[in-house]
Design a protein around this nucleic acid. Structure first.
Length: 354
DNA sequence: AACGCGGGGGC
DNA sequence: GCCCCAGCGTT
């Protein structure tokens, strides 16, 4: 079968990126997973009907590499404080970084701030609803663009995140884990599982969807992701709770182990660790911090001893405790300034950007 | 394709 | 300790 326009209610084929001829019918998998989702999906605030497209965008950026449980409280604060892109755009970057807190990868906060500015000034304050425009926003890549189109605007774009890659890999390819980065084959496999096939660009992807197919596609995007988050997890898949256990290729194959060894991210002693501690000090400080405190161990130690506010003192102590030498500390401060996460004052101090 | 980029919780 | 998490931008 080479005709990708055929409704894919039969086993997917090599031509569509799915190579297992015995794979379960896509329509069966979709129906079971979607039904499971209706009663088992979490009631997350950005999924509620009153969530705005802006709220969805904020949630998606925050959720890039950060788990739901840690995002949710911060997202609630942000929505109350900055309910529209205009509100966030009016804020200084430093305030945004402070409010980002410990979500990690603070560059995402800067990009979200830049997003808000772009939306406010170039898009009349309205979050774009088409993939090319979404992709043009800072910090919005293929996944996030599709997620915003789908979850905010009910446009059935093909959403592919790490959960969906794993779920599809197991159900249709008997693969335990999908590998660290998405391949085009995996993207095409996900595309082939949509009720109708979006065109390659994904634009106007709903042109030939019936209303029922639109609903099915949008639910599938959320449901397959949720199945990966709650049941078909990377470790300890709870197959007994899975609605498609009986048709899963990975289960049928005896749950073979992953064929690659994940390479853990180095952490101890890395620039990332140093940068994180420096940013933590900046977040806890009311104003600029002497460069020597950030760039030398002795400076951090003395500042920690002198600090009276407990959270600041703790952040300074954690910075001082790092094994990093002064050259690395200084280099990390330079890097943070280059990245726009910090600025140097004329008085030789380091502070959050204005 | 590979790398840099935070941080915390589960095992 | 190790691994994972609703990725993105750069090289």
């Amino acid at each position: 079968m080479t005709d990708v326009s055929t409704p894919n209610n039969k086993p997917a084929t090599h031509a569509t990126g799915l190579s297992n001829p015995d794979a379960a019918p896509a329509s069966t998998v979709r129906a079971r997973v979607n039904e499971w989702f209706l009663s088992n999906g979490r009631d997350l605030p950005w999924r509620r009907p009153e969530a705005t497209a802006w709220g969805v965008l904020v949630s998606e950026i925050m959720l890039q590499q950060t788990p739901v449980v840690r995002v949710q409280p911060v997202w609630e604060e942000w929505m109350e404080r900055w309910p529209t892109p205009h509100d966030l755009a009016a804020e200084p970057a430093g305030e945004v970084l402070r409010a980002w807190g410990r979500l990690g990868y603070p560059r995402r906060a800067l990009r979200l701030h830049a997003c808000a500015h772009a939306i406010a000034t170039e898009h009349d304050g309205v979050v774009p609803n088409d993939l090319p425009t979404l992709l043009s926003l800072p910090g919005v890549g293929e996944y996030t663009a599709a997620a915003v189109a789908c979850f905010a605007y009910r446009i059935p774009a093909t959403v592919v995140d790490t959960n969906i890659r794993r779920v599809i890999g197991r159900i249709f390819h008997a693969k335990a884990l999908p590998g660290p980065t998405m391949t085009r084959a995996q993207y095409r496999a996900a595309q082939a599982l949509m009720p109708a096939h979006p065109n390659e660009a994904g634009e106007a992807a709903d042109a030939h969807y019936s209303p029922a197919e639109v609903a099915e596609a949008n639910t599938w995007n959320a449901a397959s992701m949720e199945l990966g988050a709650l049941v078909c997890t990377a470790r300890d898949a709870r197959c007994g709770e899975c609605p498609v256990e009986s048709v899963c290729a990975w289960v049928a194959a005896g749950k073979p182990a992953a064929d690659y060894v994940p390479r853990g991210q180095a952490w101890h002693g890395t620039d990332r660790q140093v940068r994180g501690r420096v940013m933590a000090v900046l977040r806890e400080s009311d104003g600029p911090v002497p460069h020597e405190v950030m760039a030398t161990r002795d400076g951090a130690e003395r500042a920690a001893s002198a600090a009276t506010e407990s959270r600041l003192r703790s952040a300074l102590a954690e910075l001082a405790l790092l094994t990093a030498d002064d050259a690395q500390r200084a280099s990390c401060v330079r890097g943070l300034v280059e990245d726009g996460l910090a600025v140097l004052t004329s008085g030789g101090e380091v502070s959050l950007p204005g």
